[in-house]
Design a protein around this nucleic acid. Structure first.
Length: 574
DNA sequence: GCCGTTTTCGGCCCGACTGTTTTCAGTCG
């Protein structure tokens, strides 16, 4: 069983949890968490790096000791330090750390004084009133634990960006209408356009005496108020989504926006630079001693540490600070750069609208071309097209195009890549089309070698243009297929074909790290809606967000090309 | 445990809110 980076990261997180409960050196604990994060974000398996003989200590936060532990875990799936730590504390204890309000100190006390090892035992101890007797605990804490355990059981973990947006927009409008409120800004991972968000972070500037805090906690979607101070409050909405509100003065707005946008790792890196310059950065501003030298807007904060403003989507401490320092920040692609969309369905298969309706909706968004790419016959659940029905649709597009003004429909197909890598329709049929989008819709659990080989063979097909939703993952529902994405990207380069970034909020596939890989290898990415109705084109903005998180610039994106240039790229030489 | 054109040793981001305390520890973001 191969060891994935996520497995190593999980072991390091568990080591950190256990060390924390033991009361170990906090910086040693942080080292394990940093290493877990590095591994979680590594686009290549650590195993592969080792096989290539690359030096693991060149990775951020990995020194000699942790490199050795990675080697140990990769080669035998275990870590002797963790084995020792597991003997000291029973297995489920780290799970207690997942309960909000319980940190290492309390977990340690609960285990040592009450022999609480599991969430179930914790619940009984709280219910029986045994927790309030412990030193440092009281009745209120006990009640909070009881409620936290109950909430924990019914909790949904993270919200997809598009779902969170529905709550965010409504709440922002509500807050904007409160007297004395100036700016209302969504910050946090929402502003960074992460594919899912754990909570909403809202920043508000308000005049003193504004009732914004009281109004916020009284918002009728609020199910529970977790905390409420004069400048900060946290609530849980009825949907289960947590929302944190922070109120600051206008003079602190930029510093607060930086702080509240994160990511945490990015903020820490910025503060470290500030520290070396003799400055202190907090949510109120940038300070030299007692003197505030910046903070009214974000640009001033970055400027004070010698950097240009960094777009929120890049703020993950994944090289953006070094790039900013060296003047290498990308000029990220924007929604307005998109000229077309290369993946959409109509009611001929599993879509809801007609060719004309889809064309007009795309045009209304400012697009000048739209590829119609129905499913092929193998996907029977979607009523996929056979050669005859596809030919009819092509004829219909040919008839419709002259009637359309300002937008051109392209003839395409989303053809199934069968298990052996062949395509679901004959060559001569595919050859009549403007583009062929290939997609895996079955057999998601093939071995890495087989799944990769299947896709490489599909790309060898002379008419193959674009690989749809390359990893096949569905957020929270289906893990990505196990494929060697670097090989796929390099093969796309050799074959002159492209990769899709599917903008559907459940997919957002390519992943951001693979966007970066495609960019480095010189393979263009197409940001496509995969629209099944005329409303779905709005999802393109999430695709653009994901592309920006993957450092893509306008020229890295296939469908920023005008139609004529696009046609030239699609007619690659075989 | 990591890291270094200020350091191979001595640092390691910063503040708000809660509850149990009588000045602060624990937790969280």
């Amino acid at each position: 069983m191969p060891v994935h980076n996520a497995d190593i990261a999980a072991l390091f997180e568990e080591i950190a949890d256990r060390l924390e409960i033991q009361g170990a050196n906090p910086f040693r604990i942080r080292a394990y968490r940093n290493a877990a994060r590095t591994l979680g974000e590594l686009p290549q398996p650590a195993r592969t790096l080792m096989e290539k003989g690359e030096d693991l200590t060149r990775l951020p936060g990995i020194g000699d000791d942790l490199a050795e532990k990675i080697r140990e875990i990769v080669s035998n799936g275990r870590c002797s330090l963790l084995d020792r730590l597991r003997r000291d504390l029973p297995p489920a204890v780290t799970e207690l750390l997942q309960i909000p309000g319980l940190g290492p100190k309390r977990v340690k006390a609960l285990y040592h004084d009450l022999e609480v090892q599991t969430v179930e035992q914790l619940y009984r101890a709280a219910r029986d009133g045994r927790i309030r007797a412990l030193p440092g605990f009281g009745e209120k804490t006990e009640l909070n634990i009881l409620q936290a355990v109950e909430a924990h059981a019914s909790q949904t973990r993270r919200f997809k960006l598009a779902v969170a947006a529905q709550y965010a927009d409504a709440l922002a409008a509500f807050l904007q209408a409160v007297p004395g409120v100036g700016q209302v800004t969504l910050a946090g991972s929402f502003r960074r356009m992460r594919e899912t968000v754990g909570d909403l972070d809202i920043l508000v500037t308000a005049a003193t005496g504004s009732p914004v805090m009281q109004r916020f906690t009284a918002y009728d979607e609020v199910a529970e108020v977790l905390s409420a101070g004069s400048t900060r409050a946290s609530v849980v909405l009825k949907s289960g989504l947590q929302v944190d509100l922070r109120v600051v003065s206008q003079t602190s707005y930029g510093a607060a926006l930086c702080y509240f946008t994160g990511s945490k790792a990015h903020n820490i890196a910025i503060r470290r630079i500030a520290q070396k310059l003799g400055l202190k950065v907090n949510e109120y501003g940038v300070f030299r001693g007692d003197e505030r030298i910046a903070g009214e807007d974000e640009t001033s904060v970055y400027q004070s540490v010698g950097l240009p403003w960094i777009p929120p989507e890049l703020r993950e401490d994944r090289g953006e600070i070094e790039a900013a320092r060296d003047g290498r920040l990308p000029s990220l692609v924007e929604f307005a750069d998109l000229r077309g969309d290369l993946h959409a369905h109509t009611k001929a298969t599993d879509g809801h609208d007609s060719l004309r309706e889809m064309a007009l909706a795309a045009k209304a968004l400012g697009l000048e071309y739209l590829a119609i790419t129905e499913h092929s016959r193998h996907l029977t659940v979607a009523h996929g097209l056979d050669p005859l029905r596809l030919a009819r649709q092509c004829d219909e597009i040919d008839r419709l195009n002259p009637e359309l003004d300002g937008i051109t429909l392209l003839k395409g197909i989303e053809v199934d890549i069968l298990e052996d890598g062949s395509l679901d329709l004959p060559d001569d049929v595919l050859g009549r089309l403007d583009l062929v989008v290939g997609a895996v819709h079955s057999q998601f659990h093939l071995s890495r070698a087989k799944q990769t080989g299947r896709i490489l063979r599909a790309m060898d097909h002379p008419h193959f243009t674009l690989l749809a939703h390359p990893s096949g993952r569905l957020i929270d529902r289906r893990e990505p297929c196990d494929v060697d994405m670097l090989r796929i990207i390099r093969h796309a380069k050799d074959r002159g074909c492209f990769l899709e970034l599917n903008a559907h909020p459940e997919r957002l596939d390519l992943l951001d790290s693979h966007c970066q890989m495609a960019k480095e290898e010189g393979v263009l990415v197409s940001i496509n809606s995969d629209a099944h109705s005329s409303f779905d084109f709005a999802n393109l903005k999430y695709g653009v967000g994901q592309a920006r998180r993957g450092w893509l610039e306008k020229d890295d994106v296939l469908n920023t090309r005008p139609l004529a240039a696009l046609r030239r790229l699609l007619k690659r030489t075989m």
